[in-house]
């Protein structure tokens, strides 16, 4: 599969989707002007990946901040992940960031995907 590798900016996250090297990561800040447009290629890529997924997938979320429009799209991403066998989400949050920890808990309650909350 092709690789998605987006550099993070002040309002968009860094995204790596690389099946060959087994890296699946969304990190940084997500507050794009048009979150639906921004996440469209990510959702398309993941929909393809569901049909040819690796035997095991670890998906890392390491978000520092996301706006409410992005939260809807993050839920869409997680919903696609429900269709992948043996997938686990690693949800990272700064040790003192209770809001990001709670966001991880809430997302884990909304989708049928295994979550591990990881303070750092």
């Amino acid at each position: 599969m092709e690789i998605i590798n987006l550099e993070g900016t002040e309002d968009t996250p860094k995204i790596i989707l690389d099946k060959t090297n087994k890296i699946f990561e969304i990190s940084g800040r997500s507050l794009p002007e048009d979150s639906a447009e921004f996440y469209q290629p990510v959702l398309e890529w993941l929909n393809k990946y569901t049909k040819e997924a690796l035997p095991e997938t670890i998906f890392d979320f390491k978000l520092e901040y996301f706006n409410t429009a992005s939260s809807k799209l993050i839920l869409d991403v997680l919903t696609v992940l429900e269709d992948i066998e043996n997938i686990k989400v690693h949800w990272y949050f700064y040790e003192d960031d209770e809001d990001m920890e709670e966001a991880g808990e809430e997302f884990s309650e909304l989708v049928d995907v295994e979550f591990e909350l990881k303070p750092y």
């Binding site: 639906a36 409410t68 429009a69 809807k72």
Partner: peptide
Amino acid sequence: GLTDKGGAGLG
């Protein structure tokens, strides 16, 4: 989904 203005209605 998002509103026609691209918001989530969650702000």
